[in-house]
């Protein structure tokens, strides 16, 4: 799409002025941030439009807008008006690229049947809701009643989530890129060396652990060396228990592929 559908000639001229100003600025200049923000805000409808195209593929729309906006920011930063194209034209492939990368990172090949993805999301959501009320992880029976689907369908959803977790090891797992390096995460990671002290093959484990994203490394330490449950870890990190489960499965698959002398 082109913003021309919504934009007046005045809007376009304003954008050109902003871009011309922005081009001469360094990131340390006082106006840099405000002009950049304005350019991003002006083009947000483009991100929303593109995100809508991917809406029913298993990831929340808001998340898609968020990653798409990252693409827009990159495009604004790299844009060169001298190339003679509009910013929206230049930004579109970057935004779509970020959205697609998000799907890849989340492990969803876009071809995964939509019904299974929806089931997986419904189950993950129901699991979180029920856990709140019950004070523990729900059973399949409880989930089936809550969602008004059969127990076999709940199982099918769980299994597709597992399959997807183990199949997605080639992703760069950058869904943890935007994590905050919160204090508790740092504490956990600080204790890593002590935690693996008794592991015989720790020397081959160490470089593999070092390659993991921080959050996945922390989850691994908490679950396998600190005896914390998935639910406890989920609560601490503000993600769902099923997400923790998926990350654990993925991390283990990744480690197994590289770990020598583990028998």
């Amino acid at each position: 799409m082109n913003n021309s559908t919504h934009w007046t000639e005045r809007d376009r001229e304003h954008e050109h002025e902003l871009l011309a100003q922005f081009k001469g600025l360094k990131s340390s200049d006082p106006e840099y941030q405000s002009i950049r923000d304005e350019l991003v805000l002006m083009n947000l409808p483009l991100v929303q439009h593109l995100a809508r195209r991917f809406r029913d593929r298993g990831e929340p729309y808001d998340d898609l807008v968020q990653v798409g906006t990252m693409g827009l920011i990159k495009a604004v930063d790299r844009f060169d008006a001298d190339r003679g194209v509009e910013l929206s034209t230049y930004a579109t492939p970057t935004i779509i690229g970020e959205i697609k990368r998000h799907f890849r990172d989340r492990g969803w090949a876009i071809r995964v049947p939509r019904r299974l993805q929806e089931l997986r999301i419904a189950i993950s959501r129901a699991s979180a809701e029920l856990s709140q009320g019950l004070g523990r992880s729900p059973t399949v029976t409880e989930m089936a009643t809550h969602l008004d689907i059969s127990e076999d369908e709940v199982l099918e959803g769980l299994q597709s989530a597992q399959a997807y977790a183990t199949a997605s090891i080639d992703s760069s797992s950058s869904d943890s890129e935007s994590e905050d390096g919160g204090g508790s995460l740092q504490d956990v990671l600080g204790s890593l060396d002590d935690a693996i002290e008794d592991i015989e093959n720790r020397e081959s484990l160490k470089p593999l652990l070092a390659e993991l994203p921080e959050r996945e490394r922390a989850i691994l330490v908490m679950r396998f060396f600190q005896d914390r449950t998935q639910s406890e870890i989920a609560e601490e990190l503000g993600i769902s228990q099923m997400h923790v489960s998926r990350l654990l499965a993925r991390t283990l698959t990744k480690l197994r592929a590289g770990l020598a002398d583990d028998y």
């Binding site: 992880s137 059973t139 399949v140 769980l158 597992q162 183990t166 228990q241 099923m242």
Partner: peptide, 22 residues
């Protein structure tokens, strides 16, 4: 997963057990 569900395991325990078997 199926066996654990029959035993009324919690979702979390189903996933831990499945991970363990794997």
């Amino acid at each position: 997963s199926a066996v654990c569900a029959r035993m009324d395991f919690s979702i979390e325990q189903i996933e831990d057990t499945t991970l363990a078997v794997n």
